[in-house]
Amino acid sequence: MSQKQHVTLTVNGVKRSLEVEPRQLLVHALRDDLGLTGTHVGCDTSQCGACTVLLNGEAVKSCTTLTVQADGAEVTTVEGLGDMNDLHPVQEGFWEKHGLQCGFCTPGVMMTAVGLLKHNPNPTEEEIREGLEGVICRCTGYQNIVRAVQYAAQKTSQQGTAVEVAAAGSGSEE
């Protein structure tokens, strides 16, 4: 196909360099090239949100973003959100409130929730439901997803910290 292009992006705090086709979707760079398989693909029309990641702190659908568009950007995937020793409040909320069943939609839904809480730290139930417009979950019926987001919002306000994702690592070359 067309000539490969060089891109550099910081993924979960680590600087990564890739040679990619201009048409490559960011989600495939993450999954196939970088081995970060936590981000999923659930559709081909940009509706399900399973692929949602943070691009420079904002929730975006990585199935609708080209890798070359992310050149120079900071990307956070579920793998960079938090680990079992230090769960992000949203992850904690999903675990506490049974916000997932099969877990396939979950990484994208959690990233969407992080984006939502960033702009609205204390959402009402209705605002949460509206804010989940871009994701589809076939398992949970959403009720426990709403509770999970409420949990995260409450926990965050108690801690008095913004729902931001601390960039892991020091930004060194891979």
């Binding site: 769960l87 675990w95 997932l100």
Partner: peptide, 8 residues
């Protein structure tokens, strides 16, 4: 859940 909420 631990593996599913951490991308593992």
């Amino acid at each position: 859940d631990p593996r599913l909420i951490t991308g593992n």
